Amino acid sequence: MSSAETATPAATDARTERRAKRIAKHLTSFAAQHGGSAEGVVEYVGRTATRIVVVGADGAWGDQVAPTYAVGVRAAELAGLTVHDSFEGELGLRVKTGAYEWKRMAGIQLGG
């Protein structure tokens, strides 16, 4: 048996909480640096990972990857993020992109 199979629910919950707190610190720091508040989306990335896309009050954006959806949702909650169901509409329109993003998108389109 692996250690994951023998872990108690309490041990699993404690581990989830520790991971979420660590990620929440990064999200809180990002929000503080970009206008004091942030909004985001928690979305699955494959089977085992979750991406938290965060948008600051000033339109800057970033992301954090969590090992599970539960950790991602809990981290967003601990950080005080306003969580949206999708990255469309008003949240997407608030994102400010710079030269790097435009160059990268053009490179992808041109096969670079």
Rank of each mutant, 00 (worst) to 15 (best):
Met1Asn: 00
Met1Lys: 05
Ser3Leu: 15
Thr6Trp: 07
Thr6Leu: 00
Ala7Leu: 09
Asp13Arg: 15
Asp13Cys: 09
Ala14Ser: 02
Arg15Asn: 13
Thr16Leu: 15
Thr16Asp: 10
Glu17Arg: 07
Glu17Tyr: 06
Glu17Trp: 03
Arg18Thr: 09
Arg18Lys: 11
Arg19Pro: 05
Ala20Phe: 02
Ala20Gly: 01
Ala20Trp: 02
Lys21Phe: 03
Lys21Val: 02
Lys21Ile: 01
Arg22Phe: 06
Arg22His: 07
Ile23Gly: 00
Ile23His: 00
Ile23Met: 01
Ala24Phe: 01
Ala24His: 03
Lys25Val: 07
Lys25Met: 04
Lys25Gln: 05
Thr28Phe: 13
Thr28Val: 13
Ser29Phe: 14
Phe30Asp: 03
Phe30Val: 08
Ala31Met: 13
Ala31Val: 10
Ala32Ile: 12
Ala32Gln: 15
His34Ile: 10
Gly36Pro: 14
Glu39Asn: 04
Val41Met: 00
Val41Lys: 05
Val41Gln: 00
Val41Arg: 03
Val41Gly: 02
Val42Lys: 01
Val45Gln: 10
Gly46Cys: 03
Gly46Lys: 06
Thr48Leu: 14
Thr50Gln: 04
Arg51Gln: 02
Ile52Ser: 01
Ile52Asp: 04
Ile52Met: 05
Val53His: 10
Val54Glu: 01
Val54Asp: 02
Val55Met: 04
Asp58Lys: 08
Gly59Asp: 04
Gly59Pro: 05
Trp61His: 15
Trp61Asp: 05
Asp63Gly: 14
Gln64Leu: 07
Val65Trp: 03
Val65Asn: 06
Val65Lys: 02
Ala66Arg: 00
Pro67Glu: 11
Thr68Ser: 00
Tyr69Met: 02
Tyr69His: 07
Ala70Gln: 06
Val71Lys: 02
Gly72Met: 07
Val73Gln: 13
Val73Ile: 10
Arg74Met: 12
Arg74His: 09
Arg74Ser: 06
Arg74Glu: 09
Ala75Arg: 06
Ala76Leu: 00
Ala79Tyr: 04
Gly80Lys: 08
Gly80Phe: 10
Gly80Tyr: 11
His84Glu: 08
Ser86Arg: 13
Glu88Tyr: 11
Glu88Pro: 05
Leu91Trp: 04
Gly92Val: 06
Gly92Ala: 09
Leu93Met: 11
Val95Leu: 05
Lys96Pro: 03
Lys96Asn: 10
Lys96Asp: 08
Lys96His: 08
Thr97Asp: 11
Gly98Lys: 00
Ala99Phe: 14
Glu101Lys: 01
Glu101Arg: 06
Trp102Gly: 13
Trp102Cys: 10
Lys103Ala: 14
Met105Thr: 09
Met105Val: 10
Ala106Cys: 10
Ala106Pro: 08
Ala106Gly: 11
Gly107Trp: 08
Ile108Gln: 07
Gln109Gly: 12
Leu110Ser: 13
Gly111Phe: 07
